[in-house]
Design a protein around this nucleic acid. Structure first.
Length: 438
RNA sequence: GUGGGUAUAGCUCAGUUGGUUAGAGCGCCAGAUUGUGGCUCUGGAGGCCGUGGGUUCAAAUCCCACUAUCCACCCCA
């Protein structure tokens, strides 16, 4: 062994998959894409690298710490850390060329230089859908986004999941009425209710410096229980004279009112006053989606409504609403939870064509060509190796069928079609083989 | 950014109070009469025990440093 061999490793926080998993991953990605497209969303694909001044226009906070930033020559550039900021830039830049409301989806990798830990990656896929309005955007779209989350997870094969929704205006109005100024800190604490419990939230709020009176009110607020209707009634009966608060209630009522028309069953969504979302740019509806049987996985899809998407890039007012699925984490967690299919194939190939001898290669290639013309995924195993080894290749990759080509088959213009699961084999015409394989 | 683990074969891991040629399972390769895989059997390859230093007659094992990696917190998808 040469000492010059470089140890083949990937950087921490960068996930790569073996064939079996990659096939599953792509299936999930395709399902998400198809669902988004079915709802009329238009694809975009922005550059992975953008000017740092663009990505960091907002400035401050965690982003600057976590962004991958570098220079090439005189250009200061960075890897995108989400798909929303590039969207904002895109919409502002192409404002004149786009038609509003602009519905786009974007599935792509983003980068964050975080300390890696379980289910947290430095490179990961986000699957975003957003609807951007010009000046105004009906709140009914907030209900549609909820419906898209629902249909996406249904199409992915889930049934027991809950989309939790809330409205930032309710929270902001409520905090306003209590004269709370550091709302971001309070939101973050409340958002952790599920994780740390009421006591945990309480002690965090004390730490933040709120009076016990205010804390009691907050705790009572987040404890409001019941059906959607009951929660709304409870909120109204708080009699809070605050314009923002009232708007929030009105908006969430509208959303709940329309959700039914979109065909979302009541068991799949709920008003949850503790959902806040860490991001501070949300201004209205917010969403978090949880798998009922696996709460430990955390939110698998989240997002919300924002008033002004592109304020750093244009003076146009562009409100929008959207959500994002963290696909890499979702996939990783599903795999951890054992929710991904077992014994899945390691290839997409449906049939392996095996020439018994190298002199039958050309005939085999023709067979494979015909199979492909009939949309049957097929490949030929070339090389002067034993039949056993070729069959074993099919076996290891879980290829369901093989077609064996030898003297006998060629003489009669037929093929030997072998079912690899049962082991049965028969000599048939190519047409009949195609019928079986379809 | 803060705190805590771990590091032995391609993978998952054993390895006794420090003791001589470092093990298993899976995987890989080869064979069991050369037009037939899976199952079984037999054989084989593959390890500077993360790197460097220290203690000791003796270190995979104990100590220190470094590096890598994982987990939790922060934050977030």
């Amino acid at each position: 062994m040469s000492k010059e061999i470089v140890k083949p490793t990937t950087l921490p926080g960068f996930l790569e998959l073996l064939p079996e998993d990659q096939i599953l991953f792509n299936k999930i990605k395709d399902t998400i894409r198809q669902t988004y497209e079915k709802h009329g969303f238009i694809p975009i694909d922005t550059p992975l690298i953008e000017k740092s001044e663009v990505l960091l226009a907002k400035g401050g906070g965690e982003t600057e710490k976590q962004i991958y930033r570098f220079t090439k020559g005189d250009t200061d550039m960075s890897l995108r850390f989400d798909l929303t900021v590039p969207l904002a830039r895109f919409v502002a830049q192409h404002f004149q060329e786009l038609t509003f409301p602009y519905r786009r989806y974007h599935i792509g990798k983003v980068y964050r230089g975080e300390r890696s830990q379980r289910g947290r990656f430095r490179e990961f896929y986000q699957c975003d859908v957003d609807i951007i309005g010009n000046g105004k955007l009906s709140v009914i779209y907030d209900a549609e986004i909820l419906s898209i989350i629902y249909h996406t997870f249904i199409n992915l094969g889930f049934e027991d999941f809950t989309i939790r929704i809330n409205n930032r205006k309710i929270l902001n109005g409520f905090f306003d009425s209590l004269n709370i100024t550091n709302t971001a800190d309070v939101l973050r604490s409340i958002d952790k209710l599920q994780k740390i419990g009421a006591k945990g939230v309480s002690s965090e709020l004390i730490h933040i410096g709120l009076s016990t009176k205010v804390i009691d009110k907050i705790l009572n607020f987040i404890k409001i229980q019941g059906s959607g209707e009951e929660k709304l009634q409870a909120l109204i009966s708080l009699n809070i004279e605050n314009q923002t608060f009232k708007e929030g209630i009105e908006e969430i009522s509208t959303v709940i009112g329309y959700v039914k028309s979109f065909g979302v069953p009541e068991k799949n969504y709920i008003i949850d006053l503790t959902i806040a979302r860490g991001l501070d740019y949300y201004t209205g509806t917010v969403y978090e989606t949880f798998l009922d049987e696996y709460p430990e996985i955390g939110s698998v899809c989240s997002g919300g409504r924002y008033d002004n998407l592109a304020e750093y890039y244009t003076t146009q007012k562009l409100p929008g609403v959207g959500v994002s699925i963290g696909l890499t984490r979702l996939f990783y967690q599903l795999k951890e939870a054992g929710l991904l299919g077992k014994n899945t194939p390691s290839t997409l190939t449906k049939v392996l064509v095996i020439p018994m001898d190298e002199s039958f290669n050309e005939y085999s290639i023709k067979i494979a060509n015909s199979l492909r013309e009939n949309d049957i995924i097929s490949e030929v195993y070339f090389g002067n190796v034993k039949i056993g080894k070729k069959l074993n290749y099919a076996n290891k990759l879980n290829i369901p069928y093989t077609i064996l080509i030898g003297e006998e088959e060629i003489k009669n213009w037929k093929v030997s079609l072998k079912d690899m699961t049962t082991g049965s084999q028969e000599i048939v015409t190519l047409d009949n083989a195609i019928k079986t394989l379809k």
